[in-house]
Amino acid sequence: MDDPRLTPVSFLGVGEMGAALIRAATAAGFPVTAWNRDRSKADVLSGVSVAGSPADAIAAAPTVVVCLFDIASVHEVLDPVVHGLAGHRLINLTTTSPDGARELAAWAAAAGAEYLDGGIMATPPMIGTPNSSVLYSGSRHLFDDSRELLETWGAAEYFGHDAGMASMYDLALLSGMYVMFAGFFHGAAMVGAAGVPAKEFATRAVAWLQAVLPALTEYAEVIDGGDYSLPGQQSLYFSDLTDILDASRQQGISTEVVDVVQRLIHRQIDAGHGRDGFARVIESIKHSEAAA
């Protein structure tokens, strides 16, 4: 007998991530209807009813999950069928900006639909595993009422009524990831120019980064306290990256990645804060160069 708690769900978008979300939901027993522009991508999913149009998919279930390319594609798909959303629950897992999520929340409310925005902190293969998490903001009622569905994809965490907060956290965490990866790529290019394989360098980089990551908590305490002159901090003078830049040029590689950090450091040094700790570079980030 079907579990009466597992209400039907419709999915709009069957890309790699959408397909992973669908597989996790169907594996948990949810009745799923899917729509995709390229119907063949939906046809290959087992245990799924395939809708011929977005309107048909919306009509098939009270909960509609949207996982498309961007906010423009969300509007392109849903604007023509907006009247069909009245009384529905809309969960948007399309990556958008915080303001984009807020705009969609207002748009959904005007259509008579509950809205929940999600930021997926996982790759498609991670969906449904302990390493997957999805951040949510928007309707608390929708979040609580849909926990069984949401937890099929990974750990579900709620960040409040402001629909833009999940996106804010998502993009902020991704910014840390991308900058860290870019730093690794720079290091790999440095030693690579001397014939060291990236795989060998990665082994050392992983161990090194794991050793220094606890410093994030220490930096956070300094930033929240606002006192960058506390003893025990590495000064901005000592943090100067000239040696890294010189070594990079000598290896014949681009210095663009490191240049960014060096500029942040020197904006604070030039403003008279060279003896303060390295965490002070956040002030260069928080304020435009003209206002620094």
Score class of each variant (00 low, 15 high):
residue 118 G to M: 09
residue 141 H to M: 03
residue 254 S to L: 00
residue 253 I to G: 09
residue 220 A to I: 01
residue 270 D to Q: 08
residue 267 R to K: 05
residue 141 H to W: 02
residue 183 G to S: 12
residue 209 L to P: 10
residue 148 E to C: 03
residue 204 R to G: 14
residue 188 A to T: 06
residue 103 E to I: 01
residue 75 H to G: 10
residue 237 Y to F: 13
residue 272 G to Q: 02
residue 248 S to I: 02
residue 67 C to N: 11
residue 250 Q to P: 01
residue 123 T to P: 03
residue 250 Q to V: 00
residue 279 A to G: 13
residue 96 T to M: 10
residue 189 A to W: 00
residue 245 L to V: 10
residue 273 H to T: 02
residue 131 N to T: 03
residue 205 A to E: 05
residue 139 S to I: 08
residue 161 H to W: 01
residue 71 I to H: 04
residue 189 A to D: 06
residue 263 R to P: 00
residue 110 A to Q: 11
residue 124 P to T: 03
residue 43 D to W: 01
residue 26 T to S: 15
residue 167 S to M: 07
residue 69 F to T: 13
residue 257 V to A: 10
residue 250 Q to K: 10
residue 49 S to I: 06
residue 75 H to M: 00
residue 150 L to A: 06
residue 18 G to H: 08
residue 143 F to A: 09
residue 232 G to W: 04
residue 30 F to Q: 08
residue 75 H to Q: 02
residue 196 V to P: 15
residue 265 I to P: 13
residue 76 E to S: 15
residue 110 A to F: 01
residue 76 E to R: 11
residue 68 L to R: 02
residue 108 A to E: 04
residue 116 L to P: 13
residue 143 F to G: 13
residue 23 R to A: 14
residue 38 D to A: 14
residue 37 R to S: 08
residue 150 L to Y: 05
residue 188 A to F: 12
residue 38 D to S: 13
residue 59 A to H: 04
residue 44 V to M: 08
residue 218 E to P: 00
residue 281 V to L: 14
residue 227 D to F: 00
residue 172 A to N: 05
residue 58 I to F: 10
residue 269 I to N: 07
residue 85 L to E: 05
residue 52 G to N: 07
residue 196 V to H: 06
residue 271 A to C: 02
residue 251 Q to E: 09
residue 245 L to F: 01
residue 193 A to T: 10
residue 152 T to S: 13
residue 135 L to F: 12
residue 281 V to M: 14
residue 66 V to P: 10
residue 53 S to Q: 04
residue 216 L to I: 12
residue 261 V to L: 14
residue 60 A to M: 14
residue 226 G to V: 00
residue 37 R to M: 03
residue 80 P to V: 06
residue 181 F to D: 06
residue 289 E to G: 08
residue 171 L to G: 07
residue 31 P to Q: 03
residue 275 R to S: 11
residue 142 L to E: 08
